[in-house]
Simulated scan of single mutants.
Amino acid sequence: MSVKPESVSALFAGPFALATLSAPDGPRFPALVTPDGNALDLRAALGDEQLTVLRLLDRWDETLPRLRALAADTGVGRTPIEDLRVHAPVEPRQIFQSGANYRQHVIDLHVAHRAPGDDRPEAERRAEAAEIMDRRAAEDLPYVFIGLPSAITGPYDDVVLPAWAEKPDWELELAAVIGRPAYRVSVDEAASHIAGYTIANDLTDRSTVFRRDMPQIGTDWLRSKNAPGFTPLGPWIVPAQSIANPDDLRVTLKLNGETMQDESTKDMIFKVARMVSYASQTAHLLPGDLVLTGSPAGNGMHWGRLLRDGDVMEGSVTGLGVQRTRCVAEAAE
């Protein structure tokens, strides 16, 4: 059974957010959510029975003023969110994931992923990681790779831990949601292409990050990050205009009530606009695409405590709400 939110009131910044909801056993629909815990079905409000959040983002410049007007209209009938199911807020066409974007996190991962035969003291390996990171920051080259939309699940859905995943781990992240096509945009231009922000937990199986059969190949992100449900997303997309500074938000993950990650996005090496701009230099970013901005220190490898059956993760980012997911072990065949 999925973990339900304890409360939806005052969970996000600004006058409204976007969500994908459904009534029990009903179809999913795009919704305008207000901080008082109510939702408006946008299919009826905007006169489009085929409407989805992705289609809203496809015409974001046109849609945003209408959403603002609907949020201000208190006479429009709404439904309490507690009577509805909350799904991932958008089904993106592309997901751009990033790694090594928080200083302490990079050092922790470098130390945890000791190469076979590397018997150097931890202090020496930490110093090496710091040097590598400083060099990357000076060269201004973020580390971006591709994720699969099929890995996305809802913000309160159970997360199935595959039987083959020996070291499943959490990585809470701020995610930028694209609202205007972006190709080879500058850092200064990038912010205008972001429709809003949401929360992503970019789960990783640490045991399959590196190929064991041929170490020369390097990382294997398909295997380690893209199992079904490995990217809990949401609960909401909060418009960018409601977030004063995405580079100064608190990213917090609790495991069974104990705080494991708690860091500001100020600690990111490459800020949000830089990440979007960098991804756009190679790929054509489309409305609804996600740009995940990396995860701070405090993952399971750092604590020596990986995810297991029954664990409950609660992730929050300032102004974006809270997601809460339970881990369920897949039965071994």
Rank of each mutant, 00 (worst) to 15 (best):
T20R: 09
H87M: 10
V177P: 07
D73T: 09
I81Y: 00
D58K: 11
L70P: 02
S7W: 02
Y197V: 07
E128V: 13
D73I: 06
S9I: 09
S277V: 04
A88C: 10
A273M: 12
W303T: 12
L46P: 02
M268T: 07
G319C: 03
Y143K: 04
V187F: 13
L292G: 02
Y278G: 03
H284N: 02
T34E: 00
V185Y: 04
V272Y: 04
A130L: 08
V106D: 07
D48C: 14
L253D: 08
D169Y: 10
A123N: 12
A273K: 15
G99V: 13
G315A: 11
I178E: 06
Q261D: 11
R180F: 00
L56W: 04
G288T: 04
I107H: 11
L292V: 14
R326G: 06
N201V: 12
I237F: 04
N101W: 06
L233W: 01
T153P: 04
V185W: 06
L285E: 08
D248I: 01
R184K: 15
N245I: 00
S280N: 07
D25K: 13
V160R: 11
P239K: 07
R326A: 11
T79K: 13
M1S: 01
Q261Y: 06
D169C: 03
A279Y: 10
Y156C: 03
A71T: 12
A227C: 05
L290I: 15
R180I: 07
E330Y: 01
I237M: 10
N299F: 02
C327E: 09
W164M: 12
N38F: 13
T318F: 07
E91W: 13
D108A: 15
P246A: 05
P35Y: 11
G218F: 03
E139M: 05
V276K: 01
E49P: 00
A130Y: 02
V185R: 05
G75M: 06
P162A: 14
G310W: 06
Q97K: 14
D205C: 07
L46T: 09
L285G: 05
V106M: 14
